[in-house]
Amino acid sequence: MRWNDLYIAGVGSYLPEQVETADEAIAAGRYTSKKKAVNGYRAVRVAAPGEIGPMMAAKAGRQAVERSGHDPEEFGLVLHSYLGHPGLDMWTPASYVQRETVGGSGPAYEIKQGCNGMLAALELGGSFVTGRPDVTAALVTAGDAFRMPYIDRWGTDEQTVEGDGAAAFVLSSRGGFARVRSTFSIGDSSLESMGRSGAAWTDVPFPGGETIRVSARKRDYLLAEDLELDGAIEKIAGNVKYSLEHALKEAEVESADIRFFLHQHIAESIATHAIYGLLGVDRATSTFDWGLDLGMVGTADPVLGLDHVIATRSPRPGDIAVLQGAGAGYVWSVAVLEFLETPHWAA
């Protein structure tokens, strides 16, 4: 979809101070040298005791709101996404984030679409802001703290390593430092069972207190008798490429125009094939190497990358940034942004 009056007015991020390295995890028997060599992760950030994802999201959200120049009463929507346990069951973390940031009487909703949640929220929030004359701004946040025994950041997935942290951005119909030129999302539910294959239905969350094993579900999926592996890979690769091509077409942008390509902190082996090889993206335009010291921070990676390039790479008016994500289920999203100015907090 091409957007005419949708802007990013502020961006915020929060990363805990504590660092846990891959070498420390290897020494503790939680990771292996082989996985480190293949996946590329060097370290992650670890939330302090009692520091939950919504708390970190609220910190990032307050920073984004302050930078945006919007008053709290201008916000008509808050969207919050996450992957892991938000601190309590039967609770409303989106409303908590709203209370801790902008308050007000607008609705607060959770967006749950795996690792793609934050980019999905950008597209949904954009529709809300531009379609409601009484709404000027929306706050979008993401935050996760991955803890044992529910999730083993070094072992729940054979390829991905999870890091703690949060990010936020403000969508505005009034103006901002960047214009959203286009967004595009595409889904393929035929791949949904990849996230649950071999897992039995449960009556309660976290039954038995056993650590989630995402990789075991993937193995069961790949071993299913009726699965055509080549067909599944073709679908995934095809939709990664199609979503980018479609978003660029809607934005009237060529791939050569991209200065920043901001994607998830996936394993290096996957990024090399599915991003740089498949899409022809120049790795130097990304923040991927920086992200190998953070791990995959829930749904927040592309927005963390956006905040990072603002702070370190001197974006200029006219620069194009592409945010790309995917979430199991499967849904792929791409957003194309054009910098209108260097954000005032980076000048």
Rank of each mutant, 00 (worst) to 15 (best):
N39Y: 11
Y41W: 12
R42L: 15
A43G: 09
A43I: 07
V44A: 13
R45P: 11
V46E: 11
V46R: 14
G50H: 04
E51F: 11
E51A: 06
I52C: 04
I52P: 01
M55L: 11
M55K: 02
M56T: 05
A57T: 07
A60T: 05
Q63S: 03
A64I: 00
V65Y: 07
S68Q: 06
S68W: 14
G69P: 09
G69I: 05
D71Q: 13
E74R: 14
E74D: 13
F75T: 05
L77M: 05
L77T: 06
L79N: 00
L79Q: 01
H80L: 07
L83M: 08
L83E: 05
G84P: 03
G84I: 00
P86S: 02
G87W: 06
L88F: 15
D89R: 13
W91V: 10
S95P: 12
S95V: 15
V97N: 06
S105M: 11
A108S: 14
A108H: 13
A108G: 04
Y109T: 12
I111G: 00
K112T: 07
Q113W: 04
G114F: 07
G114H: 02
G114C: 03
C115S: 03
M118N: 05
M118D: 03
A121L: 03
L122Y: 11
E123L: 08
G126C: 01
G126V: 01
G126M: 03
S127D: 07
V129T: 04
V129C: 00
T130W: 12
P133F: 08
P133W: 09
P133Q: 12
V135T: 10
A137H: 03
A137F: 07
A138P: 03
A138H: 00
L139M: 00
V140D: 04
A142S: 14
D144P: 05
A145I: 00
A145E: 01
A145Y: 05
R147E: 14
M148L: 15
